[in-house]
Amino acid sequence: MVKITKDEINHVATLSRLEFGEDEIDKFTEQMGDIINMAHQLAEVDTEGVPETVQVVDRETDFREDKPEHWESRAELMKNVPEKADGFIKVPVIIDKDDNE
């Protein structure tokens, strides 16, 4: 059994730039514990001597040639941007937050 603590949930929330209320944190701590423990069943499989798998796609190396293509896609891409100014994406200034603060 893996025990997930409130501190861990708070820490992951900070890394994800998310803010939750106290009751939500309690709920997620419990839910996340269940999820992790379900996934943790995989650890029961004996993998002694089995090489690590990072990819299941088995094919030859596929490189792309260094040929630039100009996409006239700024207007489309910027459609998803909530706030913009002079072609820039406008965001609130984010000062790096201390995780240990």
Binding site: R64, D66, K67, P68, E69, H70, W71, S73, R74, L77, M78, D86, G87, F88, I89
Partner: peptide, 23 residues
């Protein structure tokens, strides 16, 4: 290089903001 590492967008210096990007 002439294009980016994982996409064919051109690598340029001083282009207008957000013009040399793609999906």
């Amino acid at each position: 290089t002439k294009s980016k590492i994982f996409s064919p967008s051109p690598v340029t210096y001083g282009a207008e903001a957000n013009t040399e990007t793609n999906v």
